[in-house]
Each structure stands twice: as structure tokens, then as C-alpha cells.
Amino acid sequence: MTSITPDANPAQVVPTVVVHRAWKRFGRVDVVRDLSFEVRPGELLGFLGPNGAGKTTTMRMILDLIRPDRGEITVFGGAPGARHQRRIGYLPEERGLYRDVSVLDTLTYFGSLKGLPSREARRRATRLLEEVGLGDSMRKRASELSRGMHQKAQVVATILHEPDLLIVDEPFQGLDPVNADLLRRVVLGQRSRGAAVIMSTHNMEEAQALCDRVLLIDHGRRLLYGTIPQVRAAFSDGAVVVRGEAVPTDPGPLRSVAEAQRVDGTVRYILSPGRTPQDLFRELAALDTRVERFEVASPSLNEIFILAVRGDRRAERVP
């Protein structure tokens, strides 16, 4: 089990996964093109991209289910392969359970394949199924479970052997808010334990709330890669949004403002070159305005996703 200390120097921690200039072609289509990124222990990487962007192919390459045509992938410091399987938990997008077998038996089998003694696998499966609210259903056949129950059971199967690397493809898709929150805590618990997590998702709010870093790809190519603050800063246009009483709606009295516009009960100021939000705040205070909200505007991850996929070149600004 990988252990990291909170004050460990990130530069000294060996990345769990390194993908370096990987290429994969199916037929005449380059599904993954020159893709590079890494994931460290205790880090949750949000893997974002439209359908068909190459996310699943990349995950399968990390799992060694398919091989890259070019480039290099290292997992736990070595080549991907069977020897790492016991340290990896994988929740594929196309997931399933044996329909005519009890959930507990299926999970015990999956745990045994990962190297757990059968009894221990059963014990852990029982405990985790109870934790996710499937205590009463663990002896039911999978065919008798609802979709949400299926999904919870599959997440349990993925973490049963306490993997050091968790690769989860849309883990919360189709769940009601209560169950989504439950599984979110399960995944975050794995990160807290020190596991590296790669999570594919289309839910940008989720990514913004959970991920340490995000990787956005489209047509197999990396569009964006960085921490959430880095990404949002890169797409920020320097605007400041202010709400309050007697807030000027034109730049006249504000020397730090180049442009102002009223938007949904707020005023959005574009700052003059060289001016900072702090300058604006001081000027507003001097004008005796009553400020209720003062916020440096930066687009949401959802907006950034759309902008980046449409070719906004600010994505290249992410360090």
C-alpha cells in the first residue's frame, strides 16, 4: 500500500501513473494523440472530455487492456501489466454483474481474483455493502437489484481490495443525489487513504468540487491540464462582478475600470490594464457604495469545458 505523508514534497513522490506522449490509432482514426499527464498518490484527477474523446481508450491503456502504438505509460514506476492488477481498482463505463449470482458471491469472487483470501474478500464485501446501504440486498441476485443498487455494488467491487490506483468511469452517473453523495464520499475516502484516483466524468460541477486536477481531452488530444484554480485563472478575463447599492454602472468615477456593464442585477467591470481588483475595491469604498458582493469573475468549469472544446486558446495558458 502506498503511503504518503501530508508534508511530503510532491516533487519527490513517485507518480502512480505517467502517460507520456501516448498515441493510439483504431483503423484510420487516431483515438489518442500525443497525450501526456500524470497522477500522484492521494490525487484525484478529473478526466474530462466529450463522448468519443479517447478517455476510455486511455484508461484501458493504463490498465494494459490495450497497448499504445507510440509513447510510454508507466504505472507504479513500471510498465503496465498483470503484476499491477491487484493494486488497481477499475470501474468501467460498461459495467455489469453476474445476473444470476448473489451480489455478495460476485464481489467475493472479484476480491479473490485481486488476491484477497476468499474469507477476507467476503468479510470486506459484507462490511462495505452494509456501509453503502446494501446490507439487506447482498444475498439477492444482481437481476433483482435496481440500477442504483447495481452501481453501488460495483463501486464496492472496485475498492474491495483497497487499490493504490482507482480508475472510475462515470461513477455517479444516473444516481439520485443521496446515493451520488454516498459514493462521492466513498471515492474521496480512497483518495484520503492515499490512492491515486482517475475519474472520468461529464459532470463539471462534480469535477470542480472533487478533483485536485483536471485533464480535458478532445479527439484524443489534450486541451487542458492543471489544478482547478490554475484552469479557472487561465480562463479568467480579469473582470470583477459587484452587487450592492449605489454601485456605478459606468466607469466614469472609477479610474481602475475600462468598461462596465449591468448583468442580472450585478455590475461587471473590466479593469484597465495594470489595475487590480484591490484598486477597484478601494475606489468603490471611497464612493460610499454599499457592497454586498465583490468577486473576481472566472468562468465555471462547465463554461471552460465548452470554451476549450470550441478551441479557445486560453487553454494553452494553463501552466
Binding site: 492488477q85 477499475y90 468501467p92
Partner: peptide
């Protein structure tokens, strides 16, 4: 058909 195969192949050669 049950989509179990990918889980199996990620667990065992």
C-alpha cells in the same frame, strides 16, 4: 452480454 468481462480482464490476465 453482462458486461462483466472488462472487470475480469482488469483483474486477471
Amino acid at each position: 452480454e453482462n458486461r462483466v468481462v472488462e472487470i475480469l480482464l482488469s483483474s486477471i490476465p
